[in-house]
């Protein structure tokens, strides 16, 4: 792969920013989505844990079920 292709010749000033913005946008979306996904999973596990802990002794929490 010749280096001049990689640097997109005399139009590099337009080609590289286009790829850069795309990488930033898509990469940002991937990272953000993944991050919130993991956080949501952790939060749910946490809530589930506190729920079972508070319920286990007296079992009144889920009485209406």
């Amino acid at each position: 792969m010749p280096a001049e292709y990689l640097f997109a010749g005399k139009y590099a000033a337009f080609v590289l920013p286009a790829y850069g913005v795309t990488a930033l946008g898509l990469g940002g979306a991937i990272m953000l989505s993944w991050h919130t996904y993991r956080r949501a999973g952790r939060k749910l596990a946490e809530v589930e844990k506190t729920n079972t802990l508070s319920r286990a002794p007296d079992a009144s929490g889920a009485a209406e079920d």
């Binding site: 989505s33 996904y37 949501a40 939060k43």
Partner: peptide, 12 residues
């Protein structure tokens, strides 16, 4: 991923 996130959040 985002749909799963939303469902997890709603569950929590």
């Amino acid at each position: 991923v985002r749909m799963r996130t939303e469902i997890l959040q709603r569950r929590a």
